[in-house]
Amino acid sequence: MMQNGQNTALRNDWSLEEIEAIYNRPVLELIVEAATVHKQYQATGEVQVCTLLSVKTGGCTEDCAYCPQAARYHTGVDVHKLMPQQEVLSAAQRAKKGGSTRFCMGAAWREVRDNRDFDKVLDMVKGVNELGLEVCCTLGMVNEYQAEKLKEAGLYAYNHNLDTSEENYASIITTRTYDDRLNTIDNVRKAGISVCSGGIIGLGETDEDRIKMLHTLSTMVQHPESVPVNALVPVKGTPLEHQPLVSVWEMVRMIATARILMPKSMVRLSAGRERMSVTEQALCFLAGANSIFTGEKLLTTPNPDFDTDKSMFELLGLNPRKSFKEEKQLVCS
């Protein structure tokens, strides 16, 4: 892929056949190529540290088969209304002190509604932004007007995962469509907000579904700035509670392929990291992952805490990426 030491051209015209060929390479060859692309486009040894806080938990009307926050499943998740702003800002300050440079707020909503809760979220966005953190939200579907309001409040990034391939989507979620997902991403992009969009493996999908999801992401007019790769954390009470856990090699294959297809994107090693050893996580970093969530929970599922990750960073010689790095580079250049 590399010629004369030059960066591979960024592409948005990948074919399914090309992606399939990359994805199915012998895993060690795939890691080497991904590591080479990563070194050409990214600062190796630099990892974006993010914290995700559930600011409104449970009671969601959606039927996402993997999600313990869906009201229709009995998962033991307590329903909590929107957190007070001061509690959110205190959590953001703790995250910053722990080394996070991006703070993401998640609300278990199907879609954003123009009401007092949305106004409160806008105030939270302003407050976290003032702390010098990249502020991200994942609130469900948003329209163009709502995306613009979030941008005005200082929102840096918006997460809206595709979850799986378009063909497999209806077997995981029936309460919205794949086009609904894509429309929200378009609305976020139009508002000038950084896009965070990836998926989940281990839902019962095929390799073909994984390849098709990567195809959708890598052929967007502009690649998502952040691409989370999640491994399903099966939760008792959800339809997917008995799904087998994915292997580290499946995660490595997804991360490496995403890195080759979308060289400038942050590729985030997300859900499922809590049960991975430092050695397994190191393989993922070698394959091109350069972003993680840290803190004891990812919304409602377990996650390594700040001290555990700090020890791992020291062992592997990793450094946290600074907030707003892209913007600071543009100003300096």
Results as ranks from 00 to 15, higher is better:
185 I>L: 12
314 E>Y: 02
122 L>I: 15
23 Y>Q: 02
19 I>N: 08
245 L>G: 02
305 D>T: 05
276 M>I: 00
276 M>S: 02
50 C>E: 14
52 L>R: 15
297 K>S: 14
245 L>C: 01
218 S>K: 04
202 G>R: 06
268 R>A: 02
137 C>F: 11
155 L>I: 09
237 G>I: 00
300 T>V: 08
193 I>K: 03
158 Y>T: 09
318 L>D: 03
209 D>Q: 04
104 C>G: 13
304 P>W: 03
132 G>P: 05
56 K>S: 06
78 D>W: 10
279 T>E: 08
129 N>R: 13
49 V>W: 12
187 N>F: 12
110 R>E: 10
332 C>E: 14
39 K>V: 04
240 L>G: 05
158 Y>H: 12
227 V>Q: 00
86 Q>G: 09
146 Q>E: 12
196 C>W: 10
134 E>K: 10
323 S>H: 11
69 Q>S: 03
239 P>C: 01
30 L>M: 06
35 A>T: 15
95 A>W: 08
21 A>V: 06
147 A>M: 05
222 Q>F: 12
205 E>K: 04
136 C>D: 15
123 D>C: 13
188 V>R: 07
260 I>S: 12
166 E>C: 08
109 W>Y: 04
177 T>S: 10
6 Q>R: 14
226 S>A: 07
76 G>Q: 06
295 G>P: 06
184 T>S: 11
56 K>L: 07
248 V>A: 02
160 H>G: 14
308 T>V: 10
318 L>A: 01
93 Q>R: 12
138 T>V: 11
51 T>R: 12
202 G>S: 07
122 L>W: 15
216 T>A: 08
230 N>L: 01
124 M>S: 03
216 T>F: 15
139 L>A: 08
259 R>K: 01
220 M>E: 00
327 E>R: 07
55 V>G: 09
42 Q>F: 04
55 V>R: 10
45 G>K: 14
47 V>A: 08
249 W>S: 04
271 A>C: 02
241 E>M: 03
246 V>Y: 09
138 T>A: 07
139 L>Y: 02
193 I>C: 03
165 S>E: 11
236 K>I: 05
217 L>R: 00
293 F>H: 04
228 P>Q: 15
320 P>M: 04
17 E>G: 14
38 H>R: 09
288 G>E: 04
274 E>Y: 11
92 A>L: 13
77 V>N: 06
192 G>C: 00
